[in-house]
Design a protein around this nucleic acid. Sequence first.
DNA 1: TCGTTCATGTAACGCGTTACATGATTGC
DNA 2: GCAATCATGTAACGCGTTACATGAACGA
Lengths: 236, 236
Amino acid sequence: MSRRSGILEFAVLGLLRESPMHGYELRKRLNTSLGVFRAFSYGSLYPCLKTLVANGWLIEEPGNASEEAVAATLAGRRAKIVYRLTAEGKERFEELLSHTGPDAWEDEHFGVRFAFFGQTSRDVRMRVLEGRRSRLEERLAKMRASLARTRERLDDYTLELQRHGMESVEREVRWLNELIESERAGRDQRDEPAGQDRTPEQGPDRSPEQDRSGDADGLPRHRGGSRPDPSDDTAK
Amino acid sequence: MSRRSGILEFAVLGLLRESPMHGYELRKRLNTSLGVFRAFSYGSLYPCLKTLVANGWLIEEPGNASEEAVAATLAGRRAKIVYRLTAEGKERFEELLSHTGPDAWEDEHFGVRFAFFGQTSRDVRMRVLEGRRSRLEERLAKMRASLARTRERLDDYTLELQRHGMESVEREVRWLNELIESERAGRDQRDEPAGQDRTPEQGPDRSPEQDRSGDADGLPRHRGGSRPDPSDDTAK
DNA sequence: TCGTTCATGTAACGCGTTACATGATTGC
DNA sequence: GCAATCATGTAACGCGTTACATGAACGA
């Protein structure tokens, strides 16, 4: 039951939940569903598929239609392999979907999680969106602080880079705000009164720090391989 | 002369060009100068410093002030190590600065390159900015194409993700346009006439495909470890 | 028949991380 | 005297890539 943890496993299970596929097509779907975020090579995909099979989440099926398959097996040739999600695999995916640990809203995971929001329950969606938002706000705070401390020592280009970076983050926060609001609004009763935008009452907005807890894989489990966040220590 | 290639080497040389530092401080500067983009751990930094020393780009100096250093050496204790750029190191950095190969404007490199624009010649800056822009435009084109082909098969969330991703890219393109324009304008003679924005004549805009060439390390040399770009194959 | 796309894999390697180990300096 | 921070390093590992090897199916 090797872990082979993370993002690829999640995405593969998610895509196969919709319909069985063989590796080649899986990769294509991976790269369009996840859009701008992440692309995977066969060098990652096929080994991953293997361990998923070994774990019992998937089964390999012969390429569609009997004739082809039979011919292939007889001749010892390599046939197309279609991967199908097993019941355990479905369960596993459901379990992963319900995780709302901190890493669900880290840079690398958030995109994939979002891509499968269609299969995600409303309250999990909310937790993930809000988690991401407070993560970004935390980031913004650090950036602002560090910028205030060092601005005069930085040249124009560095400053501009910083500025643009902050604006990007701010923009994502606004995006999240819209999503959260429309999520709250219901996503079924459309055509609301639509009178005033921005009701002054936006009280229950944040559940900021103690959100990590009732969570199956609570460990900090920092993402392996990327941007661990400029975090703490800044130039003195 | 091991490679230990890339981004960290570049950033370290660049920071040390400004002033000597020891590892600990270097890391802090790394994480603020490069801002939102990338953070490095000591596990990467110290080994990197070692190979840079081995290559002769840096020398290790005893921590500042004689007394401390002497005491340290006598007692066999470990003293602070200050790293200083050698002449060869300076040359090396200059050489790296002048590289305008395709990877200079890939996601992982561009930020760092930009952060050191203060030390970069105007025409290199231009090439990097324009390279990045056409890279992003190429990306946009692919996204639009793939989106047109698959839009009805995607659920709302996937679509929204795609949309937001495209907007992010478009935004960066606009940013680059401004930078390029102000770069062209001179960056010294400010307060220009400022009459019409968008002159119909924007002729020499792109040098799109054959730009890779007169470049010291011309190999495709795709970034190791990240987003190779959704690229080519999209869902059929 | 030949080139392109489909299709499946393996091996070596790159880049960076976390976890660990160790010790000096500073301030209360 | 003790904690926090400064400071330097190593080893194991994670995740993903590129390069390579192999072969089938399809169309002009």
